[in-house]
């Protein structure tokens, strides 16, 4: 859809099994009760440490979140008598928990595992410290439940800047992407760019798993950029930093002439610089896009060409030095 009409979606839930499968190696997870409760759904991106619930206070207990038992929870459980422990477990398992993570490879009584199994709740064990596990699991859930969308465009890493080229079908996005790849830049995705919002203001774009780094060039058909240009010509994902919209030259639209006023566009509620490039024959868009990226980098490192020029002009006006040569006398430099 056009940039001003983006279909935003968000996962409603993931299964416990999926959470386990994706993270089991990274978090070195072991499951204490097989695949019990793998079909259960997680609907909240937050995690919970149920210290107070274990102590018996279950008001506002956010039971529907992933529960993490750190050292505090385990020490508390272990200082109770066995009878008390069982009672505590009966209490918290009267709620419909999605799953439990135990950190620091802490041991859990067999009876307690049995109760979890009866209630159909997976219990995972990880050697990670609680803070680390909380960080990784939260980050994973954040990503899974992040707002996402799909945009039609070409997405390329130009000098380390993620440039998303948009514009109507057939305007030449893929050809420009190919040209950029030829000049040593890296293609992230062509035509179908899948976008996820990370934390509050970062957009990450990537290709789809079916298409990977294929692109269509009108008149040629499908080409595989990775097979043709090699590993250096591609990457899997990249932060999106600039939107360049290609438009047919329209005399009724005003294009920026100084670059002093910046337009921006909100995608998934993240504001990005939005550059509208009019195209016409004889205009080398590839080079212009490289300059767009370099200019963005300059600004990032504190130099804004338009502002610098404006300052120089202001100085010239106050000092009345207009119209002179760059250097008054070249000292026999006839080059």
């Amino acid at each position: 859809m056009p940039l001003n009409h983006i279909k935003e979606t968000q996962k409603k839930s993931i299964t416990v099994g999926f959470l386990y499968e994706v993270n089991k190696e990274r978090l070195r997870l072991r499951t204490l009760n097989g695949e019990v409760g793998f079909e259960k759904e997680i609907r909240d991106k937050n995690i919970h440490r149920p210290g107070l619930a274990l102590a018996g206070y279950v008001e506002l207990f956010t039971y529907d979140r992933v529960q993490i038992f750190g050292n505090t929870e385990m020490r508390y459980l272990n200082h109770l008598s066995k009878q008390e422990r069982l009672h505590v477990f009966e209490t918290i398992f009267s709620f419909d928990l999605p799953c439990i993570f135990i950190t620091n490879d802490n041991e859990l009584d067999e009876e307690l595992v049995r109760i979890a199994t009866e209630k159909h709740v997976s219990v995972f064990l990880s050697p990670f410290e609680t803070t680390k596990l909380v960080y990784y699991v939260s980050d994973f859930l954040d990503d899974q439940f992040a707002p996402q969308t799909v945009l039609h465009g070409s997405f390329i890493d130009v000098y380390g800047i993620g440039v998303l080229i948009t514009g109507r079908s057939g305007i030449g996005k893929s050809e420009i992407a190919l040209d950029l790849v030829e000049r040593g830049h890296r293609l992230v995705a062509d035509d179908v760019v899948m976008i996820v919002r990370k934390s509050e203001n970062i957009l990450i774009g990537s290709g789809s798993d079916v298409v990977k780094h294929f692109m269509e060039i009108r008149g040629l058909g499908l080409i595989d950029v990775r097979a043709t240009f090699g590993i250096r010509s591609i990457r899997y994902q990249k932060r999106i930093e600039i939107i360049v919209e290609l438009k047919e030259w329209d005399p009724n639209i005003e294009y920026t002439r100084t670059g002093l006023d910046h337009e921006s566009i909100a995608i998934l509620s993240v504001n990005l610089p939005h550059i509208k490039l009019p195209i016409f024959p004889g205009k080398n868009i590839t080079v212009i896009i490289e300059v767009v990226a370099l200019d963005y980098l300059s600004k990032h490192y504190g130099y804004d060409a338009a502002k610098a020029f404006a300052r120089r002009l202001d100085a010239a006006i106050t000092e009345k030095t207009k119209g002179k040569r760059v250097i008054d006398y070249f000292d026999h430099d006839f080059e």
Partner: peptide, 10 residues
């Protein structure tokens, strides 16, 4: 998931 129907890749 919504894609542009004029793009074969899409």
């Amino acid at each position: 998931m919504e894609i542009n129907g004029k793009s074969i890749i899409g």
